[in-house]
Design a binder for these strands. Structure first.
Lengths: 104, 104
DNA sequence: TTTCCAATATCGCATATCCGATATAAAAGA
DNA sequence: TCTTTTATATCGGATATGCGATATTGGAAA
């Protein structure tokens, strides 16, 4: 454990959540996470997550021009995200105040 | 990956946060997490986390009667928690609405 | 066409995370 | 005292997580 609260984990949840808000490519996902964490996750981190989400039927490829693949969330993915969000809220219900106060 | 969004991780953060709100023993920590996650984390999960937080100076033992050890957060721990909370908020800033809407 | 670049894909590895099993220790109850 | 129970502690191992390195692929630019 490098320091307290390494904040590792939850990446799959975050990626599904990002794509639910806006259709995204792998690179866009990497960039959005960089904005939030400060560090850009490596390709070896993000693409396997996308592959997993795709194979599970939670996201699907949409029309793309060129080699860029954009993904959108599926109905099944929305259901899954809904469940996951519920769990997240159960776990962190009292983070509400911190989130309201500190993040702008 | 068993299912999407396994919600693994963040345990150290959660434990430090719990103790910051109320002085707690290991068993109390286990019980509080059970309330939130539905499953009671095993001793082999919780006690090493407490040991780590204690050795790092983020929590300290307080007077206990019997064999029960209660911990309280230290000044150093508060600082660490503050930093970690900031990171958490950066990462999940847009969960605010979900937390407000769904958790009661 | 040929070269270069950017997005995607994959593999092996290091580490983190958490659990189950087991041990220890102290108090409570017989 | 002896047994039982409960809280704490520790260890090995299974799995998840994310990274670095590298390959591939298609478009853009020359």
């Amino acid at each position: 454990m490098e320091s307290c609260c390494s904040m590792k984990g939850f990446l799959t949840f975050i990626v599904l959540r990002l794509i639910s808000k806006k259709n995204m490519s792998g690179e866009e996902v990497r960039e959005e996470i960089r904005k939030r964490k400060g560090t850009r996750p490596s390709p070896g981190t993000v693409y396997p997550v996308l592959k997993y989400l795709n194979k599970s039927g939670f996201i699907e490829e949409i029309k793309h021009k060129g080699k860029i693949k954009k993904y959108k969330i599926t109905k099944k993915g929305k259901k899954e995200l809904n469940e996951a969000t519920k769990k997240f809220c159960m776990l962190f219900y009292d983070m509400k105040d911190d989130l309201s106060r500190r993040c702008y």
